[in-house]
Amino acid sequence: MSAHELKSGPLEYRSSQGRMNILGFWIFLAAEIVLFSTLFATYAVLFGRTANAPTPGELFEPSTVLVMTFLLLISSFTCGIAVHEMRRGSVKGLITWLIITLVLGLGFLGFEIYEFIHYTHEGVTLQSSAYWSSFFILTGTHGLHVTLGIGWAILLLIQLAKRGLTPVTSRKVFIISLYWHFLDVIWIFIFTSVYLIGMVV
């Protein structure tokens, strides 16, 4: 396995193990796309089945969702800057931008938790109806992914502080950046197909 080390190119791509991990993660993301597609399909099938609970149009708040969307979009951008800093070889820049990304992610999560609590007060929960079950599970699965991503990134920050940039740490950072962008893309689909359509219909 040690035979195919490269001398140039991005650090994370230099070892063959690094290249394999990145490819493996891309495949994992493909599986994640299937996972979210299934949840989206479930949501679409159950759309409108609110039973006696309020409809989404009555509850959704455009302003909250818009703020959440911007927080996550910007965090995706700052995550890009972090990787850019890593390519430049700046550990400090990388850590700084990664922390900014995490703070934005935390902000997103905070709003999402607020949103869920708000709905609960309005009398809508996971148990209310088929539609609300699918709503909470779809957005909740995304939220859970963001939470795990934040926890994971904190572990990486500690490793970066301890070890600096090595082929291993840079590979880990690169992979988590893929993950983070992926969550952003999923959110865009949630924003349009859940919130925008939910508010209009």
Partner: peptide, 14 residues
């Protein structure tokens, strides 16, 4: 376990 309504007869599940 948590009482959601995806596949139930109640709550307009499917």
């Amino acid at each position: 376990i948590f009482g959601s309504q995806f596949f139930t007869l109640t709550g307009e599940g499917m």
